[in-house]
Design a protein around this nucleic acid. Sequence first.
DNA 1: TTCATTGCAAAGCGTTTGCAGTCAC
DNA 2: GTGACTGCAAACGCTTTGCAATGAA
Lengths: 165, 165
Amino acid sequence: MNLQNEVLDKRRLVRLKQIKEVLKLYLQKKNYRNTPERYMILEEIYLLDGHFNVDDLYLIMLNKKYHVSKATIYNTIEMFLDAGLIRRHQFGEKNNISTSYEKSYFDMQHDHLVIYKQGSDREIVEIIEFCDPRIQQIKTSIAEAFGVEIENHSLYLYAHRKNES
Amino acid sequence: MNLQNEVLDKRRLVRLKQIKEVLKLYLQKKNYRNTPERYMILEEIYLLDGHFNVDDLYLIMLNKKYHVSKATIYNTIEMFLDAGLIRRHQFGEKNNISTSYEKSYFDMQHDHLVIYKQGSDREIVEIIEFCDPRIQQIKTSIAEAFGVEIENHSLYLYAHRKNES
DNA sequence: TTCATTGCAAAGCGTTTGCAGTCAC
DNA sequence: GTGACTGCAAACGCTTTGCAATGAA
């Protein structure tokens, strides 16, 4: 068990190093500067599990040693999106639409099953990630049918738990 | 040609009458009041083709005889969503995410292919509606796999036109 | 030294809220 | 007559912007 955790921690560190390398190359290519803020924000995002929003990130970094302004976080997130280091999500369909993000570099593209609390159309109790190959088939068909190149997609399924009876 | 237009206009009028009946029944069931504003907004939405946002609707109604406040439009749209009379969309993925709506009563559920201007990740040039049966299959599989009831989904494909060369 | 980047505070913008007046029932 | 609904203006929350100060190259 301890050994397993050690292995996981080691892998996490290796990945942190890799992802910073990816950022470095991106900054180089774009002729942007290597600021410590950018690397700290990237590190924080890649230490996080699951989804986060700008405020989450801001507060987490406040509680640690490193203070970064929200303006910088917004700018940096925009850049990371462009770099493909993170993805943006809009969970919630009715209203209470909230923007969140997740790291994307090591993960495969996946979609989301959003489960609402019983009797509510707004309160989300769980978000499950899934991957179905048929979505790729759809993309291929539609790309061919309309003569376009599809770079990207977003699929959300909205559900409630089945009534146990 | 004239005859054809007349037929189309007649059909449109019949549908307007039908959809107002649907609203009336909904209001009855929910014990809400039959205000002229609600019927005017519904009529305006069902005369429109394609997608609209709150501001569009507000301005269109200003330019006609009927003035309705934005607060009322927001309230009413919330109600229409609940009634299933309209659907909400969030087009645009990177940023410039904008909320829009479309009538939904007579249309079948469909998905959207969002085409960006060449070289831009933000400027949308066209939104094509499509319908692929495989999405239904995915919903059925996922519902079964996770033991949930899927009420709804949203699928957007993001694309650029192919380079003609 | 230079200019991209940061941080702060102010501005923007779409949406919501509070409340007084209105009108459906 | 009563309370649901409307309209207005103010408030809200998230995001962007302007600008002076900083620090990477």
